[in-house]
Nucleic acid binder design. Sequence first.
DNA 1: TTTGACCTTAGACTTAACTCCAAGGTTTAT
DNA 2: ATAAACCTTGGAGTTAAGTCTAAGGTCAAA
Lengths: 133, 133
Amino acid sequence: MYRIGELATACEVTADTLRFYEKNGLLSPSSRSDKGYRLYTDEDARHLKFILRAKAMGFSLTEISELLNIEASRSDWACADVKGMVEAKAAELQRKIDEMTRLRDSLQELADACCGGPESAIHCSILDTLETK
Amino acid sequence: MYRIGELATACEVTADTLRFYEKNGLLSPSSRSDKGYRLYTDEDARHLKFILRAKAMGFSLTEISELLNIEASRSDWACADVKGMVEAKAAELQRKIDEMTRLRDSLQELADACCGGPESAIHCSILDTLETK
DNA sequence: TTTGACCTTAGACTTAACTCCAAGGTTTAT
DNA sequence: ATAAACCTTGGAGTTAAGTCTAAGGTCAAA
């Protein structure tokens, strides 16, 4: 059994984060000490690691909730459900990547057209472009 | 002279957004009517378009404030200053793109390893991976 | 003249995922 | 015995960029 600070340190999060996860239904300690201290089991710790791994993959806490639901009753779900979530997330990331790539290219074009010298910016092509495209 | 609703419609933002920009020092109308209505000039409209273009390039409102300062006194700045901001922003985007690409690849790897079939998820490789990496 | 569209302000609310604080109780080490 | 380190709760604050509401004033058209 781990107290909140112990689990937090072990998993490199803060105790506040663990309380936050509990409040949001992601992870509750299996029990409490007689004085009300949260007591986490190894199973709880695995649970937390699941959450942190999913977070590292880019899932939101809401999505992680769904994943935890599925994980908790795997037999109620099909592989296709899980794969669908993962692919939807990958597609969402791809859309963001595409958008950011477009922005980056625009910025690079802007920068490339600029002399970038120590002269005054009175005739700066970047500002000109922003002013009147 | 445009009233707030007119300028908003013309530039496809809301009147609330214009008031918000004013409160945050990005764009103030050149004058007010005798009854206190905001009155924007063509110059104000160009100002707003500058803001919207910079926003479309991925700049935050804080960064746009800086750009507007530079724009307002171009001779006080060097081309290198402006180019530096643009390149820094491009680099920041690149870092985000790299990170998201990494995440997307991880997700794709996860998805590719999953049968994705209609069978129960009891032996789902995705859940297994999240549970014990 | 009265309805509807427009404008004003101050200030609260939104989202996500924490983070911090106050006021107090518990445990551990010296 | 006492101080440090830990724990509890409830609730407020953070960030970005708006968005919405209330309560009221103004203006144009029928």
